[in-house]
């Protein structure tokens, strides 16, 4: 709790955090064109929450990203994967055959499918890492 008096860390962290989250989303949506994707974006997003929690206390972090959200987020990430697969099956394709998502333009369908599943990965990884951090921090007091 001595962290609370550490002005330099508090100011530096607060001014860095917006860029953390912006960078996470940049990595997520630019993953098709450069290095990056759901896994990296998820970990960067979680690292931002962890930094905030380390410096301002876990309760402050939980006020921003409540624990029930991340608990649901892990399951939702996996569900988005499953839903994408089921959607392609309903369109008459095989499981995770993204081309069927847009019958007229299979390439566009592929882009759509990759966007969905990468979002699922982002949800699962970001929520999972944040939740693990919360659990360890709760145990510590």
């Amino acid at each position: 709790m001595r962290m609370r008096e550490n002005t330099i860390l508090r100011v530096a962290a607060k001014s860095l955090l917006p860029f953390f989250f912006l960078f996470a989303f940049y990595v997520q949506f630019h993953g098709d064109f450069g290095p990056g994707g759901g896994f990296q974006a998820g970990v960067i997003f979680a690292a931002g929450v962890v930094l905030y929690g380390l410096i301002y206390g876990v309760d402050a972090a939980k006020a921003v990203i409540p624990k029930p959200w991340v608990e649901v987020g892990v399951a939702l990430g996996v569900l988005i994967w499953i839903a994408t697969g089921v959607a392609t099956m309903l369109e008459g394709g095989r499981y995770l055959e993204y081309g069927k998502l847009d019958v007229a333009h299979p390439v566009h369908g592929q882009h759509l499918g990759i966007l969905f599943v990468e979002f699922g990965v982002l949800m699962a990884v970001a929520s999972g890492m944040t939740l693990i951090f919360y659990l360890f921090a709760e145990r510590g007091r």
Partner: peptide, 20 residues
């Protein structure tokens, strides 16, 4: 390997929780 790294940190966290 990209997926293995992220899965690795998740399983490491599971191991650490066992230690705790």
């Amino acid at each position: 390997m990209l997926t293995a790294i992220v899965v690795g940190v998740a399983t490491n966290a599971l191991g650490l929780s066992f230690v705790v």
